[in-house]
């Protein structure tokens, strides 16, 4: 069952164009959304969530169009744009107290459980948390209303190796419980540990969207390399000599 279907997504900015991005995310899978800095990952995720307005394209969650069912869809998804960066001076307890009023299916026991797993202290403020702990707080808020789909924008950026490992472990744990995850990153080693599918964009264009194994096999067959990093570098790298030839240094 398709949890998220994105087709023909376009977004035009004066200096950047997201061009015809399409992919489908099936239930219970982890999709890594990769691309170098500025490739359009955040623009795509924000368009999917109607935070920015796409110039064209269709977005469907759980078989429903986004705009007419925005409230209902947002009840069933959780978004974390990296670390929590709202209400940094308010206590976590207060943030939870307000946030939970918006979700009829808020599970206080699950919230407590995730707070304990992530070692979050409700008497602290987000400003007092490390980057990794802020990501964990964002995940706790998303998971406490039993989000069926987590959309995470570079959740592992800025985390130390241990926190990254813990977070990736949490993704696998959630996947085993039927949660679907779409997360963007440019840290390819994270994906090799947990992703089932890869959607890869470069310069606002879709390069690939397929199962991880198929992507890796194709990359190897095309002689791009045998790791995600090598394949990505092979697609993206332009030598200084190429630039020099274009701009006449």
């Amino acid at each position: 069952m398709a949890i998220l279907e994105v087709s023909g997504l376009c977004k035009d900015y004066p200096a950047f164009h997201l061009n015809n991005v399409s992919f489908t995310l099936e239930k219970g899978r982890i999709m890594g959304f990769i691309g170098r800095n500025g490739a359009g990952k955040t623009t795509t995720l924000k368009s999917i969530l109607n935070i920015v307005h796409p110039s064209a394209g269709q977005i469907r969650f759980f078989g429903m169009d986004l705009l007419p069912h925005e409230d209902e869809i947002k009840q069933r998804i959780g978004y974390a744009g990296g670390a929590v960066d709202f209400y940094k001076r308010k206590k976590i307890r207060k943030l939870i107290e307000v946030t939970k009023t918006f979700y009829p299916n808020w599970d206080e026991a699950a919230c407590r459980q995730w707070m304990e797993i992530f070692a979050l202290d409700e008497n602290k403020t987000p400003a007092q948390l490390s980057e990794g702990m802020k990501v964990k707080l964002a995940l706790t808020l998303a998971l406490s209303h039993h989000a069926e789909l987590l959309i995470l924008d570079e959740p592992t950026s800025g985390l130390d190796p241990v926190s990254r490992e813990e977070l990736l472990e949490a993704f696998t744990f959630l996947k085993d419980r039927g949660v679907t995850i779409l997360f963007s990153t440019h840290i390819t080693s994270d994906l090799e540990k947990c992703a089932d599918d890869i959607t890869y964009i470069a310069g606002g264009r879709l390069i690939a969207s397929e199962p991880m194994t198929a992507f890796m096999e194709r990359g190897a067959a095309e002689g791009r390399g045998d790791t995600l990093e090598n394949i990505m570098v092979s697609y993206e790298k332009r030598s200084i000599h190429d630039f020099a030839a274009e701009v006449t240094i």
Binding site: I51, E70, D71, I73, K74, Y79, G81, T99, F102, Y103
Partner: peptide, 9 residues
């Protein structure tokens, strides 16, 4: 941003 991500119009 916090508000528009909530399940509200």
């Amino acid at each position: 941003l916090y508000s528009v991500l909530l399940p509200v119009r």
